[in-house]
Computed example of a mutant assay.
Amino acid sequence: MTEIDLVVRAQRTLIGDEWHSAAVAVRAGLIVSVAGFDAEIDARDDVTLADDEVLLPGVVDTHVHVNEPGRTEWEGFTSATLAAAAGGTTTVIDMPLNSIPPTTTVEALLLKRAAATPQVSVDVGFWGGAIPSSLGHLRELHDAGVFGFKCFLSPSGVDEFPHLTRPQLFEAAREIASFDGLLIVHAEDPGALLPHGGGTHYDDFVASRPDAAETSAIDSVIEASRATGCRVHILHLSSAAALPSIRAAKRAGVRLTVETCPHYLTFDAASIPDGATQYKCCPPVRDAANREALWEALVDGTIDLVASDHSPATVEPEGGRGRRLGACVGRHLWRPGDACRRR
């Protein structure tokens, strides 16, 4: 009786950084061998992809908001992980907000694991949260198994996950460095954000969250890493203006990694129609030249990875106030006329 459950054959199979013609054998959900395309392998199922199809490793998405428990009506682990599997994502790492409670204590982590365990269709891991009340207790979460600690440097948009001040950023970095953990940062400087009075013009919104908000915050993160030795990661980089500082920090040996998102690599501000709330995200989609600079930085390795920042929500705001919210690219929510509510 055959021991191989499935063989997938493809003329274009990505192995390492190169394309090969190959046959991939799977047993009990695990790849057990990679052979030549025409290799004789006795398997229960033998699938050959079409010439215009490619065989890729499963995607690891390190930036996903599942929202369960507490906001499961936005999306829970069943929906999130089935959708991930359907799209070829085999691992997701869940952010510590928007769940209630947020993953800022061991107890909250255990609640989230209990909610996830009977539902997941792909591998799932969890980030912890660095908020003012969790500082001094981060080692406990690290030892319980979180992959690192997310913080905001500007208001997060949910009351249960407050942002860190600059001194608290350094405090978190010192604490996390003591056990060689990872600090991941939503890097926008609240002091550089400008009032946004509403209206339908996308350019007005972008102007309220200028490049300086990102560059200033990223400079603080770099300084905190340099001072403490903490490993740091910049989330959803949108501003190419920060690339010179990032490149210089990496050359100097700062323990820094950076991600961007598909929406920053795809859209540009000039192409976004007025009133198109689905494009409103924080930090914002910027101009075409900025987009091309992000692509160049991804190709040359300045930007280390691309993550989705997936986080859907219902059209109704929490609390049943009856005012509609629109989900947007990057899945940040906003109330028309308000500043972007980062989810």
Rank of each mutant, 00 (worst) to 15 (best):
I4D: 05
T13W: 06
L14W: 06
G16D: 10
H20D: 09
A22Q: 04
G29Q: 06
L30Y: 05
D45L: 12
D46M: 03
A50T: 11
E53H: 13
V54K: 10
P57W: 11
V60A: 13
H65N: 11
A84F: 01
T90S: 14
I93M: 09
M95K: 08
P96C: 07
N98I: 07
P101A: 06
E107F: 01
L110M: 12
R113T: 10
T117R: 14
V120H: 01
H137V: 00
A144Q: 10
F147W: 11
F147C: 09
K150E: 05
L153T: 11
G157W: 03
R166F: 06
Q168M: 13
A173C: 14
E175A: 09
I176G: 04
L183T: 08
V185K: 05
D189V: 04
D189R: 03
H196R: 13
H196E: 00
D203A: 15
F205V: 08
S208V: 02
E214M: 09
S216R: 12
V221D: 04
E223H: 13
A224M: 10
S225P: 06
S225H: 05
A227E: 15
H233L: 03
I234V: 15
L237E: 04
A242P: 01
A242E: 03
I246Y: 08
R255P: 00
E259M: 04
E259S: 05
T260F: 03
H263T: 04
C281D: 01
P283T: 12
V285K: 02
V285E: 02
R291L: 08
E292A: 15
A297D: 04
L298S: 11
D300M: 10
D300Q: 12
T302Q: 08
D304N: 14
L305K: 10
G319P: 07
G319H: 14
G326S: 12
G330Q: 05
H332K: 01
G337A: 11
D338E: 15
D338A: 15
